[in-house]
Design a protein around this nucleic acid. Structure first.
Lengths: 218, 218
DNA sequence: AGATAGTGGACAGTGACACTATCCGATAGT
DNA sequence: ACTATCGGATAGTGTCACTGTCCACTATCT
């Protein structure tokens, strides 16, 4: 398949495909002539993966590159997941404030109880620390560390529901299994986030009008 | 308090404060002289709110403006929440693909069962539709609509835990209550997202080494 | 065989975004 | 009096994710 065909099937503009090739998100096609290349089904799948990560999950090009690089090198599953989880994550915090140091202690205690490794470079950990510290300083100084464990467990429940919704994922050939695992990680996130917002809307509704049906919105 | 003092207390660079003033995120101070203005505690709180929404929650200036505008006009709580939930959300989808139309039906059924209004402009709804449709087309064509309700309920569980962690929020003066509700909505999100990623890491660990302790990561 | 559309590759240009920098004439503090 | 700081306005910066244009060459149709 030529690049125009790839563009047609994926719905991605041709100049954008060229851009993805330049950026190394999409592996180059196999050259049949000095200026003719051939693209396969796996290029199409990759292109769709890139598009989904970009448009639906909202990842930056740099993060997508980190994800596909992790996929590419065919490392052990757990390694790739770690890379990828980091790729999806936020920014690293350079210097810890006092509140952040306190939050870090609380988070690391939790991670230890869960049997998860504490990696200094884990972006997920940094993100939690930054956000939890801000919760304490700006929102509610008395939020106890005991809040974290049940909250984590509720999040794990969600992850297990996602896993149950995509059975047989680990029976696929490794390359595709990883691709799909990444997709799942990235695609369910916006659903979860939006559901949580709807839930808050619903809870506010309850507080305001405990037994009324929800009012129509302007 | 003058602007330099506001800058010092909030830790926000002075030119950035000026930028926020220009953009209307921060209300202007009260002029004591044609070129001297006075800023209050509420300006400080607002500045910190802006910073938290920007840095921790990762909102764009435009979305933050939507949030503070909703706060500003002192509307009814539910209205403001709706505005704000939308402000936090993703992008609207213009034309529905076939898969998206199918997803929309499934989502709207769910919303109806929950007693939530179906608003065409709800960004949360759009986001769910786009992501769920992509899950079906790219990840797993057979994901049933029955997945959605338990998944939503798990998300609502999280929202209730958050509410429990910040007791007495609705007893505050309305202005501050709304400010804090927004903060909570925005600040717990990165925590939840990061927890979910950790949970997936943990689940993969289980699958790969059912009874081993987690390996140290490079 | 010739016309025309498409190709890979290089490189410049674009528009949105979130700040920064600089300048101004007017005050504030010492 | 004099220096620092003020508010307000305007211009400039760096990043990001494309998008456009150009080129010499190839594929395909007639």
């Amino acid at each position: 398949m030529k690049i125009s065909e790839l563009s047609r099937q994926s719905g991605i503009p041709l100049p954008t495909l060229k851009f993805y090739l330049r950026e190394g998100l999409l592996p180059p096609g196999t050259l049949t002539q000095p200026n003719q290349a051939d693209y396969s089904e796996s290029h199409l799948r990759r292109a769709e993966l890139i598009r989904a990560l970009r448009e639906v999950a909202g990842l930056s090009i740099a993060k997508i590159r980190a994800v596909v690089d992790a996929l590419e090198q065919g490392e052990a599953t757990y390694e790739v997941m770690g890379q990828a989880v980091d790729a999806l994550g936020g920014e690293a915090v350079s210097a810890f404030t006092l509140a952040q140091a306190q939050a870090a202690t609380d988070i690391d205690t939790l991670l230890t109880e869960l049997g998860l490794p504490i990696r200094d470079e884990s972006l997920a950990r940094h993100q939690i620390i930054a956000a939890f510290a801000t919760v304490r300083t700006l929102l509610f100084p008395d939020v106890a560390a005991e809040f974290l464990m049940p909250y984590y467990l509720a999040a794990e429940k969600l992850a297990r529901l996602e896993k149950a919704a995509t059975p047989g994922l680990f029976e696929l050939p490794p390359e595709q299994a990883l691709e799909k695992a990444m997709l799942g990680l990235a695609l369910f996130e916006p659903i979860l986030v939006a559901f949580r917002r709807l839930a808050h809307e619903r809870i506010v509704l309850e507080v305001l009008a405990p037994e009324a049906s929800p009012p129509a919105r302007r």
